[in-house]
Design a protein around this nucleic acid. Structure first.
Lengths: 215, 215
DNA sequence: TAGATTGTTAATCGATTAACAATC
DNA sequence: TAGATTGTTAATCGATTAACAATC
């Protein structure tokens, strides 16, 4: 069960999520900023400095006592930890509004994530191009994934077809699913899923707002 | 509509997030399903039944010992807790791809969330309509918010203008910010923010995938 | 040396799970 | 009564924070 991995100790799940936020923060920083303290970084992100240092400590520390962090060292280490150093390729299923938004999302390339194919069943969408990538018929999806050896799939289809689309992706060899449909999808052992249910965010906001009103 | 009895008790943050998932699950359930067990619901959502019951217990329990949960009672109670029973009105800033996707998102109305105005600076977008809502110039935003008494604002602008847009929203009286720009925005006391940084999800997926590959 | 900073341990706090009582 | 189910407490597990040592 808890075996040491080649890249070191197991990282706590919440720490991984913050690693992503740290990296994102560093990428948005102006080029000329070469060093930053835990206090400054933590304040901007909205956490405690001690938590940030504890996070870095899980990997043995990213800096040196007495010195601020080198932003470029930090960025490289985080990319490495998050497995973003080699290119990863993605397909997107569902070229509706949300699918188009993701296809046009500029930030992916910054993390070496490349969209290679878009698939839909709607004849009006097939043949359209987003950032140079053509929308193809769903019937070509599995061959495309196999030929290109793609491992990441983004699901932007209505919830009624999310599970069959997911199954087709997995059958074709997809190992990671990024699911924007409002239904959780089930996958076999060895495949990982990241569910991004947009409703959860707005409902949480609604609750927080109601609490704030009472104070 | 402040309910004193169950309210007042603070709900653990992670429980609130799961409440949103439970409600979402119930809304996607076929109309004719009138009762459901904690085991069945938990399995579909991907958590333990005991955690679901513990969640419900924070509000005194939603059901009766020995009986399954009544889906409609459950749904009503969750809507109440999440403060989704009265209508809430929203404005959206930034009518690019992601903004358009959200403007077209069908699920909001199911939770009594209504988009009332869309704002952008791009002349090509101003005047367009999404689901009947016109895109207006950003200069009209503050008056619109004040006149309509709107409390929720959705930010879908590039990260360089996220903070000034956020400040303008807050100045006009917005109390809750749903932020899709990749930069965390800062707000004064009394205003709540839900940051939805899309990059975090894909980076987490990238990490999980790298771990899965090692096993 | 003094002040600022990160590394590291230990304590605290909160979230999850196990166990079983209560109820139907 | 037996089996299924939720309510509730207590134990376990994990995440956050405080404190301070180490270093520059």
């Amino acid at each position: 069960m808890n075996r040491p991995s080649p890249r070191g100790k197991r990282i706590p799940p919440f720490t991984v999520l913050r690693f992503a936020r740290y990296l994102n923060f560093l990428c948005n920083l102006p080029e000329e900023v070469r060093e930053i303290s835990s206090a400054e970084m933590a304040r901007t992100i909205g956490i405690k400095a001690t938590q940030l240092r504890q996070d870095f400590f899980t990997l043995g520390g990213f800096g040196r006592q007495g010195r601020k962090y080198d932003t470029r060292v930090l960025e490289e280490r985080l990319r490495e930890v998050l497995a973003l150093q080699g290119s990863q390729h993605m397909v997107l299923v569902g070229a509706g509004n949300l699918g188009q938004a993701l296809a046009n999302y500029q930030d992916f390339e910054r993390f070496n994530l490349y969209l290679r194919g878009i698939f839909d069943t709607n004849p009006k969408l097939i043949g359209l191009r987003f950032r140079g990538i053509e929308v193809m018929g769903l019937e070509h999806m599995q061959d495309f994934i196999r030929e290109q050896g793609i491992e990441l799939g983004i699901i932007c289809v209505p919830h009624s077809v999310a599970q069959p689309v997911c199954d087709a992706l997995v059958e074709a060899g997809i190992k990671g699913i990024w699911n924007f449909s409002p239904e959780n999808v089930l996958v076999p052992e060895g495949v990982v899923v990241q569910n991004e249910n947009l409703s959860v965010g707005i409902m949480n906001l609604s609750y927080q707002l109601s609490i704030a009103r009472e104070d």
